[in-house]
Amino acid sequence: MADEKFPTRIEETLEGSVLFNVPFPKGDDLSGLKDMAPIIIKQSYSIEYIHSYGQDSPFFAGLANGRFLVTREPDTGYTYGTPRGHDMYTGKETEWVEIPCEGVMHAFTVCHFGSEEFLPECPYILALVEFEGVNTLFLARVVGLDPAEASEDWIGMKLKGRFRLWSKFKPTDVYFYPAE
């Protein structure tokens, strides 16, 4: 268990020996085969995708230039904190609008465990951020708080955004920290 000071189990890993044969009955008696333990092998699989942000690309270009963009339905004014190319109510194309990168923590968690890709970053704080005059939220990392002091009182906290100097063209090119 991760929180044990002196674990009594060594973590299993996927390294091993290359095996070219296994025991098998020498004679004609095959009746014991159903009692055989299963052969378990490692199969690797990796892939690199050519992922396009498509119509959402200006959002990432904005982050790279230190500007936070949302999208707005031109007639109703319904505004998406996470950009969408089309409005879900009128079906119309939205337009890009720049807003100040300041918001309020709407909901949050501290991840002490996670997917393989993010394990080295644990514990990290995830939050849904709300913005003045914007109808939907934005998922972001929050820094500058003690993960060990998580409290529902964090909800409602004012947050400021900060842009990464060297863009990675990911939504994490903007992250938030307490404004006060």
């Binding site: 959402d56 996670g114 997917s115 990290y124 990911k170």
Partner: peptide, 12 residues
């Protein structure tokens, strides 16, 4: 594009 890269983890 927007959820997984931020720290994709369902329990989160």
């Amino acid at each position: 594009s927007f959820d997984y890269p931020v720290g994709g983890f369902y329990s989160g």
